[in-house]
Structure formats: structure tokens, C-alpha cells
Design a protein around this nucleic acid. Sequence first.
DNA 1: CTTGACAAGTACGCTATCTAACTAAATAGT
DNA 2: ACTATTTAGTTAGATAGCGTACTTGTCAAG
Lengths: 147, 147
Amino acid sequence: MSDPIAFRIMNEIGIIDQLGTTLFERAMPHDLTLPQFIVLNHFVRLGCERTPVELADAIQVTKATMTSTLQRLESKGFVSSKPDPDDGRSKRIAITAAGREARDQSIEAIAQDLAAIEEAVGRGPLTAVLPILSNLRNFLDKRRGEK
Amino acid sequence: MSDPIAFRIMNEIGIIDQLGTTLFERAMPHDLTLPQFIVLNHFVRLGCERTPVELADAIQVTKATMTSTLQRLESKGFVSSKPDPDDGRSKRIAITAAGREARDQSIEAIAQDLAAIEEAVGRGPLTAVLPILSNLRNFLDKRRGEK
DNA sequence: CTTGACAAGTACGCTATCTAACTAAATAGT
DNA sequence: ACTATTTAGTTAGATAGCGTACTTGTCAAG
């Protein structure tokens, strides 16, 4: 009668993703969307330049999707792009000072929401859940390539 | 240095949702998308007629989103729609026989994927995670209305 | 070399999602 | 009763995501 456990998990995850994305985007400055913020955040954490394909792999979207997100970020002046000197097909993307600032402002804007989540759900449960979710993500990622 | 625990959780959840959706949709018949399937599944589990707003609330999307999903389902012949006799603004949506069949086929199509997830992550961990995720979803849902 | 396979990036078409604005109907308040 | 508010549903405009197909450049094999 009741759905399989994996189905219920995926169901909850889908809803959480949707609600969380909406919540965060409402708080973010510069009309930054979550994917745009994630790209900026990735740059700050990893530093240095990246190619679109590298970014796409890191963030688990297709390169076509990354093209579109980078175009929007560039039009906002938050990333810069130049041709790769060693490979005529490729590009090198870097975050700009404005991008760094927008990222910092975003971090601050969602900090309260994140703290509220921690408060509501509890640090312990969240910490317990994380490795299991990582596990699930790894499995799905492998499965994506295989099939 | 490292991101807050809640941020990492939301990050994993976003990726899992994306990968899972893609995985399921590749397996589903009739070009059914995941949201379309979820609506059909809801009908089978809950039976009887529903209004678009009821469906939107149950599935946690806006009524505008539900309008579009229902239009696609109706064009595929998987749901039917008639005006509410008691309320001139409203509609009553019902699943059709073809819709029921498409839902059953979809269940079967994703069963292997679901089983593989259970196998890979383990029933125990999944069962442990579910209530915590429900908790998180409830919190986000409340927060959505408030702010 | 030249050719053929592969990789990087872009463009297009589709669905989903949101918000905001709108129409039409029901309901509450005076 | 009449008006004001709320509710149901749709539409429009924006972004994100996928897959497919295409262009261009790289690289290996003959």
C-alpha cells in the first residue's frame, strides 16, 4: 500500500529542494538565483580560474546549462571570461570583485535561514543525515554515467 | 572555512533531486515527467476528484504551476476536467483509465531504480533519514507561509 | 599530412518553476 | 442590497534544467 522507502525519500527531497530554493532566492541580493550563487560560491571556495566544463562537472549540471548560467553571471558583471590561450575550443572563467562581493552579501542574506534550519531540525540529526545523503548522491551520479 | 551544515545538506539535496529526476524521467513511458507522474500517483493513492488548488497544496507547487501540469496531462488524456457544479470558479479534476494505466507502468519502470537505491544506501539509513527530512520539509513549508 | 574520432562550447526546443497581474466568482460587512 | 475582500484559475515573463544537434578546435592513427 505505502510507497517504497526510497520513493518517499526522493519525494521529500524534491519538495525540500523546491521550498529551499524559493526561500533562499527571495533573500538574495542582485536578483541572484541559487544556481548563480552556487557558481560564485564555488569560485570563492576553490579560487582560480575554471572552464565551463569543469564548473558543470563540479555542480552536476550539463555544460549547456552552465553556458546559460555563466552568460547571466557575466551580464551582471560577476564573472569574466577569456579564451584559453592553450586550447582554442575552451574558455577560462573567473570571478570578479563585484562577484565576490555579491557572493558575500548572499552568504549573509541566507545565514539567518540556515541558522533557523539548524535550530529547527537540530545539529545532531543534520550531521547524521549528511553522510547518507552523500552516499545517495554518489550512487545516483555513478548511475547517471552507466545507464 | 567549511560551509554550515545546513548549507551542505541543502546542497546535497539539490543535486540528488536533479540526478534523481533525470534518472526517473528517462525510465518513464509516455514521455511522462516526474511532476506529471506525481500528480497521477496522488490520484491513485487518494482516489476521487480534486481541485487544482488542492493538488497544488498537496504537491507543494503554486497553482500556476499546477495549471500547466494539468494542461499537459489532459492533453495526453490522463486526467479529465469538468466545471464544479457548486462553485463557478472551480474545477474538478479526475484521473482517467489511461492515466491510471500510465501511472502503473511508470511505477513498474522506476521500481528497479528504487530497488537499486535501497540496495546501495541501505534500508536502515533510509529509514533513519526519512523522519528528519519530513521535519525539514515541514519547517520550510511553515516558513514559506510566514515570510 | 590527412582523416576520423573526440572534446568544448553554443543554440534550440521542451517542461517546470516562480512571481505578478489579471478575470471571474463567491463571500463578508455594512 | 451593494460594496469590498477573498479565492480559483489562467496568463505572461523570467530562469533553470535536460537532450539533441551543430560548430569549431584538438589529437591520434594511418
